[in-house]
Amino acid sequence: METELYLPIKSFLETAGYAVKGEIGGCDLVGLNDGEPPVVVICELKLTFNLELILQAVDRAAASDEVWIAARVSAKGKGRESDRRFRDLCRRLGFGMLAVSDSGTVDIVVSPVSPMPRKNARRRSRLVDEHRRRKGDPALGGSTRKPIMTAYRQQALACAAAIENGVQKPKDMRAAAPKAPQILRDNVYGWFERVDRGIYALTEVGAEALKRWPAPQP
């Protein structure tokens, strides 16, 4: 599975000085450095190097400073990582290529250069904001079959945990969930019910959510 590539690539980029988190804004992996504004690195994962991986990288380029594509090394060494045309295409587009062995070793096949597309400042800003607001790294990059643990979902879980512990007013939840009033009012997931003015309770769906996803630690 693609998620098996996530930890080796994460370790590779962390060694290069980036804070890395998975499944940010639809990207398999996003890394930020300590600069202000930060350098944004995106990496897309596939089991093999293919055209779809290139197309994903093209889509991500406008929101990042550096784009990598990563895939597992082919068993017989005859995958796209050995195809000069594929490597040249990555060079022309400014994308880096990373090959991951069965043992988890990461090798640079092509180094990235400055990407050609114009930057999408709004999309880039959303990536940075979600990366910074998300607590920890709860989502493996490459996940496709379960809901992504976004910063919003983390705050909703914090609200649910607070209600379970007897806190009913949004203003009293703000330390753990700054957007508590909006989250409780919008009730996107159906976890909350308003029982009185400014007073909320947990629904059965909300209680089940806490069993499935423990509330994030501060």
Results as ranks from 00 to 15, higher is better:
P181R: 08
L32G: 02
D107T: 11
V113L: 14
V40D: 01
R72Q: 08
R85D: 14
E130H: 04
I69N: 00
D34A: 13
I42S: 04
Q56A: 14
N33D: 15
A209P: 12
E164C: 11
F49V: 05
Y6Q: 03
A209C: 10
V30Y: 06
E66R: 14
G26W: 00
D102I: 12
G94K: 05
L210G: 00
G206A: 13
L202P: 03
L7G: 04
D59F: 12
A139C: 12
D88C: 09
F49A: 03
K76V: 09
K10G: 01
S103R: 13
R84T: 13
I163V: 09
L45I: 08
R174N: 01
V106H: 03
D28W: 01
V109G: 01
V167N: 05
I108Y: 06
L45S: 05
F95P: 03
F49Q: 04
P216T: 10
E44P: 01
V113H: 08
G190N: 09
R123K: 15
V106T: 08
V40Y: 06
L202F: 00
V100D: 00
G25T: 05
F49L: 07
F192I: 09
D88I: 09
D28T: 00
Q168F: 12
I199L: 15
Y189G: 05
Q56E: 15
A161L: 03
P115V: 10
F86D: 01
L98T: 00
P214D: 06
E81L: 03
Y18F: 15
G96L: 01
E36A: 12
G142P: 05
N33W: 08
K169R: 15
A151H: 10
S101D: 07
P138M: 10
G94Y: 00
A70V: 08
R60Q: 07
L29G: 02
A57D: 01
R133M: 10
E81H: 09
I199K: 12
I148C: 03
D28R: 05
E44I: 03
G190R: 03
I54Q: 06
A160D: 02
P218Y: 09
G77I: 03
P214M: 04
D28F: 05
E2A: 12
L98D: 06
E14V: 06
E4A: 15
N165E: 14
G141V: 06
K179I: 13
C27I: 02
S143V: 07
I199V: 15
A180R: 01
G104R: 14
R185G: 05
R133A: 09
G190E: 04
E23Q: 14
F49H: 01
R132I: 11
V106Y: 08
S125Q: 14
A156T: 07
D59M: 11
C43V: 13
S74D: 13
E208R: 12
R122N: 13
V205W: 08
E164N: 11
T3N: 02
R194K: 15
E208T: 11
S143P: 02
D129P: 04
D88T: 08
D186C: 10
